[in-house]
């Protein structure tokens, strides 16, 4: 189909003029990464599904306001990040129900559905649970920066535009966020040369 060959900008223009096929194509093109961003920020699969769907709806509602000053993907991930943070905040405020007598999952109180590939790669699942738990402990501003970089693949300038902070602050937040994650995951050596008491400061 021709729409597969069109750039984001072309699809946006068409969608803004009411072309449903173009809008559909844009959504499909970006859904997986939007979902990934939401998954890493919001945590659980169900919350990520909800956040990604809400993000898609917000994209549609605001497509006419997209003016092309940034890449469409950047704009979409900004919406996804904010939506995921909304979802995260909602979840933190929901009463949490835990089944007594079972192991608590490592996903902020949200139980993952059975992973159908678990038998193939238990280690990978364990890694995912660990990183989920580590991300759950990360302050939101660090988490957003790290996720936008490592999942959304945005560069520092794009993240700075998304969060509306200086690039130097982005650099610092990513570094501090990664340091915390590494500490939590136990990947770092516990040597005296590690300056955990003096993390890089935000400019």
């Amino acid at each position: 189909m021709r729409t597969y060959d069109r750039t984001d900008d072309e699809l946006v223009t068409a969608a803004q003029q009411g072309d449903a096929a173009a809008m559909d194509q844009l959504l499909r093109r970006h859904y997986d990464r939007v979902h990934a961003v939401c998954r890493r920020i919001a945590g659980g699969t169900r919350d990520a599904d909800d956040a990604a769907q809400e993000a898609m709806i917000r994209v549609v509602r605001n497509i006419d306001r997209f003016d092309g000053r940034s890449a469409f993907g950047t704009w979409v991930y900004r919406i996804a990040t904010n939506t995921a943070l909304d979802e995260l905040r909602k979840r933190k405020r929901r009463p949490q129900l835990h089944v007594i007598g079972t192991d608590d999952d490592a996903d902020g109180g949200h139980r993952e559905p059975a992973d159908e590939f678990a038998h193939r790669n238990v280690e990978a699942v364990a890694d995912r649970l660990s990183i989920d738990a580590a991300l759950a402990e990360l302050p939101d501003e660090f988490k957003a920066a790290v996720v936008m970089r490592d999942v959304g693949d945005l560069d520092y300038a794009e993240i700075a535009a998304v969060v509306d902070i200086p690039i130097g602050t982005v650099k610092s937040r990513i570094a501090r966020g990664r340091r915390i994650l590494m500490d939590q995951l136990g990947n770092r050596e516990t040597t005296s040369e590690r300056p955990t008491d003096n993390p890089p400061t935000e400019p």
């Binding site: 859904y31 997986d32 979902h35 990934a36 998954r39 890493r40 699969t45 990520a48 599904d49 990604a52 992973d115 990978a124 890694d127 995912r128 990183i131 991300l135 790290v146 996720v147 490592d150 999942v151 990664r178 994650l181 590494m182 995951l185 990947n187």
Partner: peptide, 11 residues
């Protein structure tokens, strides 16, 4: 670490 963070389950 980056690979771990970026390894997100498919929706």
């Amino acid at each position: 670490l980056q690979a771990l963070v970026g390894d997100v389950p498919e929706p």
